[in-house]
Write a protein that binds this DNA or RNA. Sequence first.
DNA 1: AAGTGGTCTAGACCACTCG
DNA 2: GAGTGGTCTAGACCACTTG
Lengths: 259, 259
Amino acid sequence: MSIQLGCGVDTATLDRHSVVPLYYQIQQRLLEQIRSGALKAGEPVPSEQEIAARLGVSRMTARQAVKSLCHLGVAYSQRGKGTFVSGAKLEKNFRQVLSFSEEMEARGAQPRSRVLAFKRIHPNEQVAEALHLSPAEEIIFLRRVRIADSAPLCIEATHLPARLCPKLLENFEPSGSLYRVLGERYGLQVHMADEVAEASVATGAEAKLLRIRGRSPVFRFTRTAYLHNGQPIEFVKSTYRGDRCKVVNRLTRQLEIIS
Amino acid sequence: MSIQLGCGVDTATLDRHSVVPLYYQIQQRLLEQIRSGALKAGEPVPSEQEIAARLGVSRMTARQAVKSLCHLGVAYSQRGKGTFVSGAKLEKNFRQVLSFSEEMEARGAQPRSRVLAFKRIHPNEQVAEALHLSPAEEIIFLRRVRIADSAPLCIEATHLPARLCPKLLENFEPSGSLYRVLGERYGLQVHMADEVAEASVATGAEAKLLRIRGRSPVFRFTRTAYLHNGQPIEFVKSTYRGDRCKVVNRLTRQLEIIS
DNA sequence: AAGTGGTCTAGACCACTCG
DNA sequence: GAGTGGTCTAGACCACTTG
């Protein structure tokens, strides 16, 4: 057994009276070592037994910490061999559900908006189906040109079930962050979203709003966002300038397909 | 406590001598109930205690089964309340790393290829950087027009480190599935990939190969695939006809960002 | 107060890898 | 044979939710 392996894992003891779970304290400590370069890609993470012995926790707790690294994609386990740091870059955050405002902040750009419409209407067939509504139920409709760094980036048409966010027309300043208001004011937490992207060219009207030439390349997105329980909360159609936007994805190969 | 809750969970006993882990047998049984509609979206999954008691396993084993459902995105847990079936559709398989051949088979289409080039060359700067190679190290270069249902779908240029798959030129029939050969012949398992998609329009040469008009909308993909240990195994640049292709993604909102 | 999931323990046996 | 991760047990206390 290597004496060097655990370097740093036990420089400080765990706080057993903290509300922070032990496995999470251990996970954070390991992440810190990976970030700092003390543990490099391809190198083994301290074994579950070693962590358990050094930190005085049960092996199941140590295991939970190590497994959480695997779930984050930061490490991978090999039976009989050990658990190793993955070469995947930490900074490159795999794609998430981000609102426009969050995405701009993450990029360090200043999000702005020009509101084209903000009103209650009845949904068309596509919207009603996506939101699981009857055509009689009203929706909130919000259409905006989204601006980043003083130039138009996209046209975004958002549809929300009016029942889930009553008085949104009064409560929401439509140039701000919708997700923030939904979370703080209505307790609605977006959990995941299904998104379809298509490659297309701008119509004349779109080109005018986006300040590009007609028939320039654009992305067309159709996105449905869901709460934890699977209830649809938002349906968005948007058109992004092709010259100002890329779609970045991290794909995994889990052939444990649900079949 | 509801007597009805566990219906079906205990219709058959577990096979304790099987090589299949108990938690996995339980997970499969729960998945079957969700697929069959016995457990509907929003309904509670049997509690960990109930599963443990009914099936005669420890609570930790029952818990592992239930947590695995959450990791699959099929259910979600709420502290103090229970674990509930998510509304997310099972069939809609979230996006994975799939080779072209696999993707076509999943769609029920017949994949075909026209090989434009298949040779050893030295990488250019972009390829060398993506694959973490020195410019002196050779790569395998494969350029194909991919055909689905008798019409061109995309042009695909694949780059592989020659060192990792020696004699690929002899061992691989370039109209077949590359991933299959990499896995079966060389033991190289793709684990994840980073992908960038851009919206653009076809050049004249591309339009000819894809049998579309010049300046038609296309997707341009740049994909780097990695092994478990993070080592790059494949770099692909491809151009897809915009009229025959959509990018479907399932995004999650995990604000447990590694920061 | 009863039921739930979240965490934790201190053991155990297994299959696997490697020297 | 020593070390590893994978699985499993039979308990325990906690925070949380709901009637």
